[in-house]
Amino acid sequence: MQPQILRNQVKSHLLGQIQRGELKVGKTINLALLARTIGVSVTPIREALSQLEQSRVISAVPNRGFIVPQLSRQEAKNLYETIAQLEITAVESSVYTEYDIEALRNQQLLLQQSHTPMRRLEARLFFHQLLVRNCPNSVLLQILDDLKTRLRFYEQMHVRDASFYENVDNQNEAIIRAIEENNVPTAALILKMNWMVVLEYLEKQLAA
């Protein structure tokens, strides 16, 4: 099997663990166990972990190996502000069809039917994925994906009540309406507020 395919296989496995909340902050990643679980050698695992390190999802620590780094208020601030700005740039460069708007509305309905923090997080992130998928800048979209992988650790650890997302999700309808009216400045403003509400909540949780 080609090295790139093996690396992607490892990354997919680790990202799945992150999405399911199985990969914990502060936990050292067991390379030998990972190799046995996936059925590949340690070499593509190290390559995949190095790529995830470049994306700041994990860190390499001397004498410990690869670990999921601890969370901090400063990183959360940098992370959410950067994601907000990149999404605004993506929206500003996107063209939306009636099909795209309908897809956003359908996802908004799914959001309202999600009643656990994990399901609400997944539904919310998919809404934002739909929001930027027409952006022609593939590099920007890849950076967004990498940042949102790290973001998952913050929300999985600190958002215990799914009802918190209700106020955030209510802004989605306003974003959709603004896009439908071709009012990009308003959509961008609400989108930034959308991310900043979550950041404010997390900063309080991290300070507690």
Rank of each mutant, 00 (worst) to 15 (best):
I18W: 05
A178C: 02
S114A: 15
A32W: 09
Q205M: 15
D169F: 01
E92N: 08
L141T: 06
A84Q: 02
T43K: 11
V57F: 05
V10A: 11
R150V: 07
T89L: 14
T37D: 15
P69I: 07
N134D: 10
S72W: 09
Q74D: 13
T82C: 07
N183P: 10
N182Q: 12
I45T: 07
K27N: 04
A188V: 01
N170A: 10
L140N: 05
K27I: 04
N170C: 08
D169H: 04
R120T: 15
V159L: 15
G16T: 04
I67K: 04
H128F: 12
I58S: 03
L130P: 09
A208F: 06
L31S: 02
Q85S: 13
V198C: 03
Q70M: 09
N63R: 13
L111F: 07
P136M: 10
S94Q: 07
C135G: 09
V159W: 14
I38D: 15
G39A: 12
V168G: 01
S93N: 15
N106V: 04
E155H: 06
N63S: 13
E203P: 13
A208M: 13
N194D: 14
Q171I: 00
S114T: 11
L151C: 08
W195F: 15
A76K: 11
M193R: 06
E155K: 08
N134C: 10
N8L: 04
L191A: 03
N182F: 03
Q112L: 03
A178Q: 03
E203N: 15
F164H: 08
E81F: 14
Y80T: 06
S163W: 10
I5P: 00
Q4M: 03
Y96H: 01
Q107N: 09
E47Q: 15
L104S: 01
G39N: 13
K204Y: 02
V91Q: 02
